[in-house]
C-alpha cells in the first residue's frame, strides 16, 4: 500500500467519524426536544382533565337546601359543640364506628350538648363497580331534602354492600328510602336523575381540602380524634366544654 493511499484512507475515516458525531449530536438534540414536548403535553392533558372535571362539578351542582356548613353537611341536634363526621357509605370501618358510637352520639344529641354534622363523602368508588360511594352519598342528600337523613343514613349502613361488589342499585336505594318513609316521587327522581352526584363530589373535595384523608374522620370542636371510640368522643365533648 502506498503512503498516499493510507493517508487518504485515514482522512476519510476522520471525516466519517466527524459526520457520525455530528449525527449523534443532532439526534440527541431532537430526541431531547421530543421527550420534553411529550412530557409537557402529558402533564397538560392531566391538568386539563382535572379542570374540566371541576367545571363539570360546579356546572351541575345542586346543593340540598337543608345542608349546613357551606352546604356540605347535614346537622342533627343543636348543641354548642360541633361533632363533624366524615363517612363513606361503602366504608366498613364507618359502619363499625356507627354501631359502636351511635348510642353515645344519640345520648349527646338528646342531652343538648352537641350538634352532629354528617359529611357523606365518596372516596371509595373504586370498591364497587357502580361508584356506590358517590351514588349513596347523593341518595343521602335526597333523603335529607325529604327530611329523613338520619333514618336513611342508618338504613344504608344496615344494608351496607361488601367491598368489591356492585353496590346497591338505584332501585334498592329507592326501596330503602321507602322503608324509612321517603315515599314521595321527588326522592326517587333525585336518585334516578343523579341530582346530587356533583354535590357528593363537592363534599368530598371540601373534606379533602380540610385534610380529611380517610373515613371515618371524626372531629370534635374542629379537632380530629385519632381513635373515635365512644369514650374518646364523650371525653372530647367534655373537654370542649359541654
Amino acid at each position: 500500500m502506498s503512503k498516499g493511499t493510507k493517508e487518504r484512507a485515514q482522512a476519510k475515516r476522520i471525516v466519517q467519524e466527524q459526520l457520525a458525531r455530528e449525527r449523534r449530536r443532532t439526534v440527541t438534540l431532537w430526541t431531547t426536544i421530543g421527550v420534553v414536548a411529550v412530557l409537557v403535553i402529558a402533564g397538560f392533558i392531566g391538568w386539563a382533565a382535572a379542570a374540566s372535571r371541576d367545571k363539570d362539578t360546579s356546572g351541575k351542582l345542586t346543593v340540598p337546601t337543608v345542608a349546613v356548613d357551606d352546604g356540605t353537611a347535614f346537622a342533627r341536634g343543636s348543641g354548642p359543640v360541633n361533632i363533624d363526621i366524615y363517612e363513606d357509605f361503602m366504608c366498613p370501618a364507618c359502619h363499625q364506628f356507627e354501631t359502636g358510637a351511635g348510642p353515645t352520639l344519640t345520648q349527646l344529641v338528646d342531652a343538648g350538648k352537641v350538634t352532629v354534622r354528617y359529611h357523606p363523602i365518596a372516596i371509595l368508588d373504586r370498591y364497587s363497580s357502580t361508584e356506590y360511594s358517590t351514588r349513596s352519598a347523593g341518595a343521602s342528600a335526597a333523603a335529607a331534602q325529604g327530611g329523613k337523613f338520619l333514618e336513611y343514613h342508618d338504613v344504608l349502613y344496615a344494608n351496607q354492600p361488601p367491598e368489591n361488589s356492585a353496590g346497591l342499585d338505584d332501585a334498592k336505594l329507592i326501596e330503602l328510602g321507602t322503608s324509612v318513609g321517603l315515599t314521595d316521587q321527588a326522592f326517587a327522581d333525585a336518585i334516578k336523575n343523579k341530582t346530587y352526584t356533583a354535590w357528593a363530589t363537592k363534599v368530598t373535595d371540601t373534606a379533602s381540602s380540610r385534610g380529611v384523608t380517610g373515613t371515618p374522620t371524626v372531629m370534635v370542636a374542629g379537632k380530629k380524634l385519632d381513635n373515635p371510640t365512644p369514650e374518646a368522643l364523650s371525653a372530647a365533648v367534655g373537654a370542649a366544654g359541654a
Binding site: T31, V35, A42, G46, W47
Partner: peptide, 23 residues
C-alpha cells in the same frame, strides 16, 4: 389535585418513551 391529575399521564408518557427507546 393538579399534581395527582398530571402524574398518571406523565407516568404513562414516560413508560411509552422508554418502551420506544427515545432519548
Amino acid at each position: 389535585k393538579v399534581i395527582g391529575a398530571a402524574q398518571p399521564f406523565l407516568e404513562i408518557a414516560l413508560g411509552l418513551l422508554l418502551l420506544a427507546g427515545l432519548a
